[in-house]
Write a protein that binds this DNA or RNA. Structure first.
Length: 433
RNA sequence: GGAGAGAUGGCUGAGUGGUUUAAGGCGCACGCCUGGAAAGCGUGAUUACCGAAAGGUAACGGGGGUUCGAAUCCCCCUCUCUCCUCCA
């Protein structure tokens, strides 16, 4: 959520910045301004009435104490009318605030000044390229072929169990997936100083709203129903990312300045309905309904937000470097950025069998956009309450990392060579049929 | 799932319709005192919104109701604790 004061005082700037986003020209700034104006004027009126009611009520109390009953009764009659008016105005205030809130939560974040203007992925500037694509003397196999040959994933039975978009990892595939999770967590804990948390995989609606998944992207989440009566439907959701629970850990709290920065790392499965992506477009593991991910979350002072974002990207990149993978980092242009983000770097890893780069990490600074939604603040040494910046980054998403790994390290004999840092987790240096 | 007991400020804990603008204690900050500390004394400390300011309004788990006036009375919900039941 944006600061209403910023909109009030600098509507032109907000409108212009939002217009650079995808769909940003539909933004209802005028409506917001008029509701805000209406709200403040109603508030002023009703608060004056309440002040006078409080005053008279106190007088009634005094009169009652002095047994001056008829005088008290007269004042009661007088105040009763004020009370009716207050009820009416209170109702108007609530309605106005609700309407205002509805519009406010649908407003995307302002892009940071350093974000390139653009419309689509074509306009995303390349920041850097690491390594080189693996060289093959003949056409490299796709991950689907490798998985079938080495029995890493049983695609058909995954579909049998849960429908298309769900994977059954088998044998070495299951072990490789688990080894990767362990490797990622250990890397971020021991080398990058993150604190591990293991969050719930189901969260309440308020958490989804807090990170900005809701209300706009509600159709992308799986709603959980408890029992058969459906009474809990709409209240609980499978997490689309660990960001949903983890970023909300300190919601509605006032942290002390010396608690910052906070750095959390969490593993979770991620559940995405991918509504609208009929048939998911691709066979294989590229776009699925459930995948594993290790997520990095930072809560930092605003002045540190962008330095921390650079560090965060570096931490995610380290994963790919250690696994010997070729990748590129791009900065999303204004039109391609997510709803909550002020600035986003995507990391895309090269998958030789696909012949394309796959997005395995998205690192964003949401500035105070989420903090305001979840009412997370910190108290400065000077005693002032401020909103922290909240950052999130994949460190990294697993299924696609799995793909890049086996496609990159496949050998002419059909086996897959395991990169050194993974070997002791997997207790082998090679997966073969 | 069943029965009972609870939910008040950073913590503890009073308060059962009107100087409660929430007592007292602990802890915290600042000051006095001190060679320095402790003790003692004094002062200050919640959050949100409106307002240029003075100031005002709201919040005692959440929501609704009664009343001129609700922490206090009534209804609904949530959560916590204890004991059963079930269960990995």
């Amino acid at each position: 959520m944006l600061d209403i004061k910023l909109i009030r005082e600098n509507a032109k700037h907000v409108r212009e910045r939002l217009a650079t986003r995808h769909g940003g020209d539909e933004v209802k700034i005028d409506e917001i301004l008029s509701l805000d104006e209406q709200r403040r004027s109603l508030l002023h009126e009703v608060e004056q009435l309440k002040a006078s009611r409080n005053r008279v009520s106190k007088e009634i109390g005094t009169l009652m104490g002095q047994k001056r009953l008829e005088e008290a009764e007269a004042k009661k009659t007088e105040t009763r009318e004020i009370g009716d008016k207050i009820v009416e105005l209170d109702k108007a205030v609530v309605e106005t605030e609700k309407a205002l809130h509805e519009l406010m939560v649908r407003l995307p974040n302002l892009p940071h000044a350093s974000v390139a203007l653009g419309h689509t992925a074509e306009d995303n500037p390349l920041i850097r390229l690491f390594g080189e694509p693996a060289h093959f003397s003949s056409t490299p196999a796709t991950h689907i072929e490798i998985c079938e040959r080495l029995k890493l994933v049983d695609f058909a039975r995954g579909v049998k169990l849960s429908g298309s978009g769900f994977l059954l990892y088998t044998h070495w595939g299951a072990r490789l997936e688990r080894a990767l999770i362990q490797f990622l967590l250990d890397l971020h804990i021991h080398e990058h100083g993150y604190t591990e948390v293991a969050p719930p995989y189901i969260v309440g609606r308020h958490c989804m709203e807090g990170v900005g998944q809701f209300p706009k992207f509600a159709d992308q989440a799986y709603a959980v129903q408890e029992g058969q009566d459906g009474s809990t439907l709409g209240a609980l959701y499978l997490v689309p990312t660990a960001e949903a629970p983890v970023a909300n850990i300190h919601r509605e709290e006032i942290l002390k300045e010396n608690q910052l920065p906070i750095s959390y790392v969490a593993y979770s499965p991620c559940f995405r309905a991918e509504a609208g992506a009929a048939g998911l477009g691709t066979r294989g593991m590229i776009r699925i309904h459930q995948f594993d991910k290790v997520e990095l979350i930072k809560i930092v002072k605003p002045e540190d937000g962008y330095a921390e974002l650079e560090k965060l990207v570096g931490h995610a990149e380290r994963v790919l470097q250690l696994l010997g993978l070729h990748y590129r980092v791009i900065s999303l242009c204004s039109g391609d950025m997510g709803f909550t983000s002020a600035k986003t770097y995507d990391i895309e890893v090269w998958a030789p069998g696909q012949g394309q780069f796959l997005e395995v990490s998205s690192c964003s600074n949401c500035e105070d956009f989420q903090a305001r939604r979840m009412s997370l603040r910190y108290k400065t040494e000077g005693g002032e309450n401020k909103l922290p910046h909240i950052l999130n980054g994949s460190g990294t998403a697993l299924a696609r990392l799995f793909v890049a790994l086996i496609e990159t390290h496949q050998q002419p004999d059909g086996s897959v060579l395991i990169p050194e840092p993974l070997r002791h987790y997997l207790r082998t240096d090679r997966i073969q049929a």
